[in-house]
């Protein structure tokens, strides 16, 4: 495990927030939020990379098969 530093103000806000949730600690809440955000960003990046590299190739193939106008 690695320790991260966040502002006292944010910790206080999370402490208020977790009282209304099932999270038992500020650490658990922060880890969940970070993990959710990073996963989403990674997924979007992966999708963009996959389609970005392929889009032109797909277009080019479809054109040669008569599906798209020159």
């Amino acid at each position: 495990m690695t320790e991260l530093t966040v502002s006292d103000e944010l910790v206080e806000r999370i402490e208020d927030r977790i009282q209304q949730t099932d999270f038992e600690s500020v650490d658990a809440y922060a880890e969940f939020v970070l993990s959710e955000v990073v996963t989403r960003v990674e997924r979007e990046h992966e999708e963009t990379g996959k389609m970005g590299a392929s889009a032109e190739e797909v277009q080019s193939r479809l054109q040669s098969l008569g599906y798209l106008e020159e």
């Binding site: 996959k50 590299a53 392929s54 032109e56 190739e57 797909v58 080019s60 193939r61 040669s64």
Partner: peptide
Amino acid sequence: DLHLGQHKLIALAQRALDKLRN
């Protein structure tokens, strides 16, 4: 037969070759 996930340069080269070979 598509070069998804491969390096963009390899995909581009392959596409150019496909075009040349019709």
